[in-house]
Design a protein around this nucleic acid. Structure first.
Length: 416
RNA sequence: GGAGAGAUGGCCGAGUGGACGAAGGCGCGUGACUCGAAAUCACGUAUACCCUUUCAAGGGUAUCGGGGGUUCGAAUCCCUCUCUCUCCGCCA
């Protein structure tokens, strides 16, 4: 929601913010806006007068007659304009800062309750006690958490040997499927992003504490490829014929996990750096919810092919991301830890990000509009890795590689 | 890191202090010509904000990479930042 929406629908804005459990002060925004409009009016009037006088001076010069009192009036006007403009600039900055804290509106199908909308697959049964991935990983020598702690710190992971191979295979399988079967264009963006990009996509200002910031230059390590793909055309007008624009990227993702001390501390359920393949679409507003369902099907098809049982949740209004209007989460069952793990989050952000990033589309009629932006993980790697090793572990301690990955593991069918 | 050149509308490109929201071209739209099309010709072709009026319309202001300054007046002069290009240095 933007300032205009708040101004025109204050009651609806209040309802949305309550639904989202946002603490943004709408009354302050509204009163600032009133003040700003008064100043804008004053400024416009003064500027108009100034223009008229300037023209008179120009005309006088041409006719070679100068009038001292006109000059004096112009000088005073100029000072007055400057005064008003300084005040206005302050006010606008203040207002913009507040406006950036306004989250997106939520879609009408989203309410205060989350809902599990789909289930797929059978949870595996074992005639032995299945191990968690940290034990399996150590036994098979495919992940090394101790070395990761030494090299970087806690909550990092080192993949090794067949583990590194499996990680690499998953990345390539996801990318190839997105490109060949789903028709996305592969992009390899920088892993660092600037302020404007993250602000456009909605990670800033609210996620500032969740991201790593470089010290000597103001670069953020990306928490997801989403901003890089969404803001690809920031400040650009693109042609309607290129819609829907479908982009896929593999990137490492970096998260400080600042608010989650003590949560998921073991293993690699929650780590500071992880791999992810991300899908983004820019599409026509009237069909963006069809796109959302398509993207959900795409992500689901990966899990089906891998043979991993999962469930789909439609998130509650208070739980969806700042920039999103509607979000599905895909959670995969991991037999070792005995938990559902989120491996994908698929969101329709409508025109929230494209407005912030001034990403426009020129239609055939020459008019421009803001396309809708959607994003979805397909998929996040570590938890998919966890589910594979935990669900497909065998009594002898080995792990079966899902058939769809074998072209990417050089034919390796079994870890261990 | 050092030296220099540059950034103008959807695109190309002119413009070095006043009649410039900005020549010209391309593209796009509408119309004419045509059985239809191409070519040609005519007209039109940005966005945001404020005000009036609100099915439609009118007025004002801002915007020539971003920000600041000089000036009665800035696309044009000055400062600064960002980005692009060329050369030098360093380097996976």
């Amino acid at each position: 929601m933007d300032l205009k929406f708040v101004r025109e629908n204050p009651d609806e804005a209040r309802r949305m913010l309550a639904l989202r459990r946002s603490r943004v002060d709408i009354e302050q925004i509204l009163s600032l806006d009133e003040e700003r409009r008064k100043l804008v009016r004053r400024r416009d009037e003064l500027r108009h007068e100034q223009k008229v006088i300037s023209e008179a001076i120009a005309k006088g010069k041409r006719e070679k007659k100068e009038e001292a009192e006109v000059f004096e009036r112009a000088r005073r006007l100029s000072e007055e304009v400057k005064e008003v403009e300084v005040k206005l600039r302050q006010l606008e900055a203040e207002q913009e800062e507040l406006a950036k804290l306004l989250p997106n509106r939520v879609h009408s199908t989203v309410n205060e309750e989350e809902e599990v909308v789909a289930h797929w697959g059978e949870m595996p049964k074992f005639d032995f006690q299945p191990l968690a991935h940290w034990d399996l990983g150590e036994a098979l020598n495919i992940i090394d958490l101790e070395a990761a702690a030494r090299l970087a710190g806690s909550r990092f992971v080192v993949f090794k040997g067949q583990g590194a191979l499996l990680e690499r295979a998953l990345i390539n399988y996801f990318l190839d499927t997105a490109v060949r079967r789903f028709g996305y264009t592969e992009v390899m963006p920088p892993a660092l992003a600037n302020f404007a990009t993250l602000e456009a996509a909605g990670q800033l200002p609210n996620l500032a504490e969740e991201m790593y910031l470089t010290r000597d230059d103001d670069f953020y390590l990306i928490p997801t490829a989403e901003p890089q793909l969404v803001a690809y055309y920031r400040d650009k007008t693109i042609d309607a014929e290129s819609l829907p624009m479908k982009m896929v990227a593999y990137t490492p993702c970096f998260r400080r996990e600042a608010g989650s001390y003590g949560k998921d501390v073991r293993g690699m359920i929650r780590i500071h750096q992880f791999d992810k393949v991300e899908l983004v679409r820019l599409t026509f507003p009237e069909r963006s919810y069809e796109d959302l369902e398509e993207m959900r099907q795409e992500a689901e098809s990966l899990l089906k092919e891998l043979g991993l049982p999962y469930r789909v949740k439609r998130l509650a209004a208070w739980d969806i991301a700042f920039q999103s209007a509607k979000t599905y989460d895909l959670e995969v069952w991991a037999a070792g830890v005995g938990r559902w793990l989120e491996v994908s989050s698929i969101s329709n952000c409508e025109d929230f990000q494209t407005r912030r990033g001034r990403i426009r589309v020129r239609g055939k009629d020459g008019k421009t509009f803001y396309p809708h932006a959607l994003n979805g993980s397909a998929l996040a790697l570590p938890r998919t890795f966890i589910a594979i090793v935990e669900n497909f572990q065998q009594k002898d301690g080995s792990v079966l590689v899902p058939p769809c990955l074998r072209p990417y593991t050089n034919g390796l069918e079994r870890l261990g």
